[in-house]
Write a protein that binds this DNA or RNA. Structure first.
Length: 546
RNA sequence: GAGCCUGUAGCUCAGCUGGAUAGAGCAACGGCCUUCUAAGCCGUAGGUCAUGGGUUCGAAUCCCAUCGGGCUCGCCA
């Protein structure tokens, strides 16, 4: 669907070469003002100095040398400081309908990243409780990126890292045991830094109901260990369920405990030692991260001889490198920004090429109701669970809202707006366009026969604008993947929906003559395919009725 | 003190790998339903792109400084 662009680039390159420019770099862009055309090149401004010509003069000379295929693009003139503008041929745009109908559910698929292996790690919440809304944005963004990478042909693996080892599991076990014993009449305090959530109480109640005082008979340490591991499994299960409900499937659940069983963290430590990047100070072992781009060194083994969390994390990332991915992406919260330089430094210390390691710092969300902020505090246990959000606004609205902003900006999620079934709710606006198209098909008593349709009848300005939008779909996917940010898809969806509504208003679909109806029905189907595919990349349903 | 993100219309934000007269959605105001879903469409109004410098043919976009907002700087995870 880039035939016109390829053709233009080729012609401009040839013209520049003829004028004596060796290996010119051609930039084609979309003019901001559609009046100027569909495609523009700044080639004349870039190369005018080299050829000692005024930019407009060079532009004139270039246009004379272009042998354009009128079925694809037409010259729209030289304008401004020296832009050369082009316009798509109507015939070219009209053939897109046929292409989209033929691609159908594969519309947008490409091969740009064929053969590439990509790993995206996201959410990776601690198994200390159910998922809360803080993880939901990462789930939505991460999953969309996975879908988009795959659409461009990459092999993409989604992964959740489970911190099911170390100190916090002990704290979790102690917290469960405290609740459990208290229920049995033997009051025990929840330890400092322990977990106070209601879900711990529920778990303890369940244990008492089903297994009585079984765990009281164990030593305190054994009971804590056992209960801690049981709680971890329970929470991982809850988290998996929440994610599946959110239409997020993780291909892998990487367990820290397994890393530790194979003593991978010590293997990594040994490797660091061999590279001469470790040193002892005050009884602790430090990694010289400052020599590899960080502002300071970090402890990997405490003076008590325990690994810090950093060491297994290094081992985990080393495993990512060893698994042979071309692109490794971590999606983390903004509070982990120090992690970026820290982990990259550690990988460099191990001689790894960190060009392949990318960390997306996804900014926080705030919740509000009709503009009033909703207070959330992890400490005070006022954290809203992901399931509660899904209960209240549903999966479609939740996923779409989390994609509405760039990953680098904070996002305010208005719960009341997400629930509203009206035009100020962006997800309904787009879904409505899709449903509206379906209702046309319900009404039309003509069978869609694209092979017989005469697409040259689609020459109303609103039809041609709609076609221009649909043509952009592949570019939008590509932009999202390149920028590692799916939000542009929501912008495109809104624009396609808006243009469809405009078309709908100006052009009657079910009409006379029948040839025109057929062509317009085909355009409707193509639009519907675009909306459906775009929504699907966002993980949002495209309803046929609303 | 050091670092990361951010500042564009009344509100929420696009545009940021430099291009032409800075856009959209809400909210406001005025129109459009005997016709395929009015959950829609059309129009009006709304701007010191935080501020000051720099880079160049050209800066909301890149660089520097200043100011405002959010976050982080542990031998916790």
């Amino acid at each position: 669907m880039k035939r016109a662009h390829r053709h233009l680039a080729e012609q401009i390159r040839k013209a520049l070469t003829d004028l004596g420019i060796a290996e010119p770099r051609i930039i084609l862009e979309k003019p901001r003002d559609p009046e100027h055309g569909d495609i523009a090149t700044n080639a004349a401004m870039v190369y005018c100095k080299q050829l000692k010509l005024a930019p407009r003069k060079l532009a004139e000379q270039l246009t004379k040398r272009l042998a354009l295929n009128p079925e694809l693009v037409q010259l729209a003139g030289v304008a401004g400081p020296g832009f050369i503008n082009f316009r798509f041929a109507d015939a070219y745009l009209q053939t897109l309908v046929k292409q989209i109908l033929e691609s159908d559910e594969h519309f947008g698929e490409g091969k740009d990243l064929a053969g590439k292996k990509v790993l995206i790690e996201f959410v990776s919440a601690n198994p200390s409780g159910p998922l809360n809304v803080v993880s939901a944005r990462a789930a939505a963004v991460g999953d969309c990126l996975v879908r988009m990478f795959r659409t461009l042909g990459a092999t993409c693996h989604s992964e959740f890292y489970v911190n099911d080892a170390g100190n916090q599991v002990k704290l979790l076990g102690d917290s469960v045991r405290a609740r459990y014993e208290t229920l049995l009449g033997n009051e025990i305090e929840i330890p400092e830094g322990g977990y106070h959530g209601e879900y711990i109480v529920e778990f303890a109640e369940q244990l008492v109901d089903e297994e009585g005082d079984k765990y009281s008979k164990l030593s305190a340490e054994d009971a804590s260990n056992t209960l801690g591991l049981m709680a971890v499994e329970r929470h991982v299960g809850m988290q998996r369920n929440s994610l599946e409900r959110f239409r997020v499937h993780m291909d892998g659940w990487f367990r820290e405990s397994q890393l530790r069983e194979s003593r991978a963290e010590y293997a990594a430590l040994e490797e660091l030692k061999q590279k001469g990047t470790l040193y002892e100070k005050d009884g602790a072992t430090f990694l010289r991260t400052s020599e590899f781009g960080d502002t300071q060194d970090w402890v990997v083994i405490t003076s008590e001889g325990r690994p810090t969390y950093f060491l297994p994390d290094i081992a985990y990332h080393l495993s990512k490198f060893k698994r042979g991915y071309d692109i490794i992406i971590d999606i983390l919260g903004p509070d982990h920004h120090s992690y970026l330089t820290k982990m990259a430094a550690a990988m460099r210390a191990l001689g790894r090429d960190t060009e392949h390691l990318e960390i997306i710092l996804l900014q926080h969300i705030t919740l509000s109701r009709s503009g009033e902020p909703v207070k959330m505090s992890k400490r005070a246990g006022q954290m809203i669970e992901m399931n509660e959000l899904l209960d209240e606004v549903g999966c479609d609205a939740a996923r779409y809202f989390f994609l509405l902003r760039r990953t680098t900006t904070q996002l305010d999620f208005d719960i009341e707006l997400a629930k509203k079934q009206s035009d100020d709710n962006p997800v309904f606006y787009v879904q409505y366009a899709h449903a509206r198209i379906q209702s046309i098909f319900r009404k039309a008593e003509i069978e869609l026969k694209p092979e017989k349709a005469d697409f040259s009848l689609l020459n109303h300005p609103e039809e041609l604008i709609l076609l221009r939008r649909l043509r952009e779909f592949e570019e939008v996917i590509s932009d999202c993947v390149v920028n590692r940010d799916p939000h542009a898809m929501t912008v495109w969806l809104r624009e396609v929906a808006a243009q469809f509504h405009r078309f709908y208003h100006h052009c009657r679909v079910i009409t006379e003559p029948e040839e025109l109806s057929l062509a317009r029905l085909a355009l409707c189907r193509a639009t519907q395919t675009g909306l459906k595919r775009g929504l699907s990349l966002c993980g949002v349903n495209a309803p046929e009725e609303m």
